[in-house]
């Protein structure tokens, strides 16, 4: 998984998933070669161990292989779909009370989204990390941060809006733009 293998254009990634849906195992290999690195980084940031990250990634790609036929390229990107599967698999690997999101690992990448995450206010970033990397609900984050639930929802909303503005001034999301250092 060298860095130049990490990026697939949205169209080629969608084509891989479509080929998977028709039973093309090589397409699964191509999808893994294109997204395996980001999947592993995410799984490791959530689980904190290689063994659990490996299990989460294998489980997520198995889910992708199984549900490729339900993927709808008009509604979601391959990146959002696949990382959603990875995130769920990784959260399942780690009991909720064990999640200790480490900001150095979860937002330290020298990518546009890493920079955008580091540019958030501290409460925004903490709320988002507890949600995204620890899988906590609004009420759990509120309890952890000592703020009301309405305030927690607002932290998540403004954080997501700030990220959206930073990443996609044009309103579109492009995996190649996400990974450009």
């Amino acid at each position: 998984m060298s860095p130049d293998q990490r990026v697939a254009s949205p169209a080629s990634a969608s084509a891989m998933v479509a080929a998977m849906a028709s039973g093309d195992e090589n397409a699964l290999g191509s999808l893994y070669d294109a997204f395996g690195a980001v999947a592993y980084g995410l799984a490791y940031a959530i689980t904190g161990t290689h063994a659990k990250a490996e299990a989460a990634v294998a489980s997520a790609f198995a889910d992708a292989w199984r549900s490729a036929g339900a993927f709808d390229a008009s509604r979601t990107s391959v990146l959002a779909w696949l990382t959603g599967l990875v995130r769920r698999s990784a959260l399942v690997q780690t009991p909720p009370d064990r999640h200790r999101p480490d900001s150095a690992a979860t937002s330290g990448a020298p990518t546009p989204v890493g920079r955008a995450l580091r540019a958030l206010t501290e409460p925004q970033r903490r709320a988002l990390e507890l949600s995204y990397y620890a899988g906590l609900s609004v009420s759990e984050i509120a309890a952890r941060l000592g703020v009301p639930e309405s305030g927690t929802r607002e932290l998540l909303r403004t954080a997501m809006n700030d990220l959206r503005s930073a990443l996609s001034p044009t309103g579109t999301f492009d995996d190649q733009a996400m990974t450009r250092a």
């Binding site: 980001v38 980084g41 779909w81």
Partner: peptide, 21 residues
């Protein structure tokens, strides 16, 4: 929701790359 899901997907790229064993 679809737009925010894309933002969530992009967040995966904030994690520091880690090489598997």
């Amino acid at each position: 929701v679809a737009t925010y899901r894309e933002v969530a997907g992009a967040l995966a790229h904030a994690a520091v790359p880690v090489e598997p064993r």
